[in-house]
Design a protein around this nucleic acid. Structure first.
Length: 451
DNA sequence: TGTGAAGGCAAGTACGAAAA
DNA sequence: TTTTCGTACTTGCCTTCACA
């Protein structure tokens, strides 16, 4: 399993490029991958994060690590879809239709299609979304639709001039064609390899040309380290049977775990555990693990040391997964249960810990503006509709003549719609969390304010 | 002739309904 | 309650066709 084998190898080093777009403006339209700047909840939980503190967050994470030398490129987990200012993020210019963007290679992770990695203005889009923006979604082939220079992304990937970040260790098993999986003929394989090797130099050169003016150090091609025979086929294995469905509904122990997660001090259970654990775990050799209280103490009082050890041990991915699962549980709790002080407090703590409070504020404002605009438009169209009906009645009464008035009104309505179009708020910027994917907001009676 | 777009097809996923 | 089955959907690759 790739996630469990997450390595800390640096990302490919194709022309490091500093992201120009401001961090705060980044967002993703991925429904299940909301923008979550990741930083230490322990260190920042009580600090007021301002927008210009973002670099501080980054320093807190890595400044004192063993990788403090400038040559080290920070590892990237799937959560880290934001790029702080000043971070070296290798990018390549990409295009899809008329839309241009920059693909962040260290965010481009297998299988890629839903991984937000393409910077377009202030948006961070997945390749799928990028093809939609470029009006190429009907092509059903995102790799062919996205172009690097004059060549498709597919061609680059087949030539191994571009590959998913740390693909050897993070392969999802869903990235390969059925044509590879279904054992192609040796001739086909040889032909493909030959084609790749002959094109690779040209394609690499093309990429370097595309990013001319920057240092072109080449892309790490990981084909040598790949093990094609270990690739899994996409989708459901043949002959497999259904397993009993595992509900992600919060279970009691998960609830308690989550309650503890974002609280200041140890929970009552946590305080009890060390005592019960101390007697039995005082002898490390007997249990083959550190005492509960010792681990908890390190986690709370020396987070830098704790997480550094987890990182060095290569198991930090497990804890990131726990955080993700806990966040999902919190989402379900928020959606399915009446709001209570505990959940509300937890949501606020989470928002502050993840540094997304400004995103939330912007989203609230955007929703309010959108509701106001929708109401305004409804009123406008109701008025026009009433006028049209009025004209129609007059027309019927007169039994003759033309009703130029209604036509004018209709025309006016169309014009007003177009004129006001630019005033419409792009709620898509902050509209990502709807379970159903419905992007329209319900018009509430009363004022536009939702607070 | 090369390139891009559109559509077809294959393989697998996810999920609900039905059966055991 | 668990397992099996059916089906809509997703994804990726290939072929065909139109156009410059």
């Amino acid at each position: 399993m790739c996630d469990e084998e997450m390595s800390m190898s640096p990302p490919p080093t194709l022309s490091p490029h500093h992201v120009a777009a401001p961090y705060e403006g980044y967002k993703t339209e991925e429904l299940d991958s909301p923008l979550l700047p990741l930083h230490s909840a322990v260190n920042l939980e009580h600090s007021s994060m301002r927008g210009d503190d973002k670099n501080v967050v980054y320093q807190i994470m890595y400044a004192h690590s063993q990788h403090s030398d400038s040559s080290y490129t920070r590892p990237v987990t799937p959560l880290q879809i934001t790029i702080p200012d000043g971070d070296a993020s290798p990018t390549v210019p990409v295009s899809c239709g008329a839309v241009n963007g920059r693909m962040h290679l260290n965010l481009f992770m297998c299988p890629g299609i839903h991984q937000p990695c393409i910077e377009v203005g202030n948006d961070l889009l997945s390749p799928k979304q990028f093809t939609v923006r470029g009006d190429k979604e009907r092509q059903k082939d995102w790799k062919a639709s996205i172009r690097v220079g004059k060549t498709s992304l597919r061609t680059h990937m087949e030539a191994a001039t571009i590959d998913f970040y740390d693909h050897a260790n993070r392969c999802s098993g869903k990235c390969q064609s059925r044509n590879y999986v279904n054992a192609p003929s040796d001739e086909a394989v040889q032909a493909r390899k030959s084609k790749r090797s002959s094109e690779a130099a040209f394609l690499k050169n093309e990429i370097e040309n595309e990013i001319a003016g920057r240092e072109a150090s080449g892309v790490e091609t990981e084909t040598d380290t790949k093990k094609p025979n270990e690739k899994k086929a996409r989708g459901r294995p043949r002959g497999s049977v259904n397993k009993p469905r595992v509900s992600i509904k919060t279970e009691p122990q998960d609830e308690s775990f989550f309650d503890e997660f974002f609280t200041d001090g140890p929970s009552p259970q946590a305080e009890l555990e060390p005592q019960s654990d101390q007697s039995s775990s005082s002898n490390r050799n007997q249990n083959q693990c550190s005492p509960y209280g010792e681990v908890m103490n390190c986690l709370q009082n020396d987070p830098m040391n704790f997480w550094s050890q987890m990182q060095n041990s290569g198991v930090i991915g497990h804890f990131c997964d726990d955080i993700i699962v806990s966040a999902i549980n919190l989402k379900h709790t928020s959606l399915e249960q009446p709001m209570n002080p505990n959940t509300a407090n937890m949501l606020t703590r989470t928002a502050y810990s993840l540094g997304i409070q400004s995103v939330i504020v912007h989203r609230v404002q955007s929703i309010e503006r959108n509701v106001y605009q929708q109401r305004k438009h409804e009123e406008m169209f109701s008025e026009i509709q009433a006028n049209v009906e009025k004209e129609q009645r007059l027309k019927n009464q007169q039994h003759s003549g033309t009703s130029t008035g209604s036509e004018e009104n209709l025309h006016t309505a169309l014009e007003m719609h177009i004129e006001n179009e630019e005033e419409l708020i792009d709620v898509g910027k902050y509209e990502t969390y709807s379970e159903s994917g419905d992007s329209t907001y319900q018009l509430l009676s009363g004022p536009s304010s939702i607070l």
